[in-house]
């Protein structure tokens, strides 16, 4: 399929347009004849799939500036939806999802590996864990003051800002952190080479989970590592 593609139609529409229409079916053999050498070198990354296999993939020069323009607006809009949830549609969940989508956008434009270097694992985990802890802490402050869980009028701030702080520091952080984490996790894929914790020293908790899940009839195999390795082969 890729053998039959015309050899040049991306850079110079005016100069080589006539050649396109006629040599659309006879491959790349005559390419050195009708293309100047410097252009052949410049375009060598785009010949056909066999020749392209060795060349590195270049990120698109069109997508990157667009993402540079759109991403700040989208991130600001996510913040707006999060912070302005009390007066307009939206809230922490929606704003967190939009902010996570901005990270997806950046990752698709600039490469997932570069984004992974830029956005460290610590940040993602801190967002998810910190969000959960912040929600729990906001809920437990009234308990410490002798009230009920999440009784906002016992907070030292007005009730409205209590709700807002739950949305902002709690839900938005959890949702954006977990969604970014899922994205990087799925981009990495399954750890099939044993580098995950399938053979690590984390036996007890995992075995307990497996017992609860699927081995009700043989619940006494708490120290048996076989459920984990089974999971690795699936």
């Amino acid at each position: 399929m890729s053998d039959a593609r015309p050899n040049d139609r991306d850079d110079e529409p005016g100069g080589t347009g006539a050649v396109d229409g006629e040599s659309g079916d006879n491959g790349t053999d005559e390419k050195p004849d009708d293309v100047p050498p410097h252009r052949a070198v410049a375009r060598s990354g785009r010949l056909d799939s066999e020749q392209r296999q060795g060349t590195p993939y270049t990120e698109s020069q069109v997508i990157m500036p667009t993402v540079k323009i759109v991403a700040p607006f989208a991130f600001t809009f996510g913040l707006f939806v999060t912070f302005h949830g009390s007066g307009s549609p939206g809230g922490g969940f929606q704003g967190g999802a939009i902010m996570a989508a901005v990270v997806f956008m950046i990752a698709f434009a600039f490469g997932i590996e570069a984004t992974r270097d830029w956005l460290a694992n610590t940040v993602v985990v801190a967002l998810a864990v910190g969000g959960t802890l912040a929600f729990a802490a906001i809920g437990l402050i009234p308990v410490a003051r002798g009230g009920a869980f999440l009784q906002y009028d016992l907070l030292p701030i007005p009730v409205k800002y209590g709700l807002e702080s739950v949305e902002v520091f709690g839900i938005a952080a959890i949702v954006s952190g977990v969604l970014m984490g899922l994205f990087f996790l799925l981009a990495n894929g399954f750890a099939s080479d044993g580098s995950g914790f399938g053979d690590g020293g984390t036996g007890d908790d995992i075995d307990d989970i497996d017992d609860i899940d699927d081995t009700d009839e043989s619940a006494s195999t708490g120290s048996d590592p076989s459920p984990v390795t089974d999971g690795g082969e699936r």
């Binding site: 992974r116 956005l119 460290a120 694992n121 993602v124 985990v125 998810a128 952190g177 977990v178 970014m180 984490g181 899922l182 990087f184 996790l185 799925l186 990495n188 894929g189 399954f190 750890a191 099939s192 995950g196 914790f197 399938g198 690590g200 995992i206 989970i209 999971g231 690795g232």
Partner: peptide, 14 residues
């Protein structure tokens, strides 16, 4: 999120 980590046999997200 934690369950996805467990299913995919990873310890870190990134």
């Amino acid at each position: 999120g934690i369950a996805a980590l467990i299913v995919l046999h990873r310890e870190v997200f990134a």
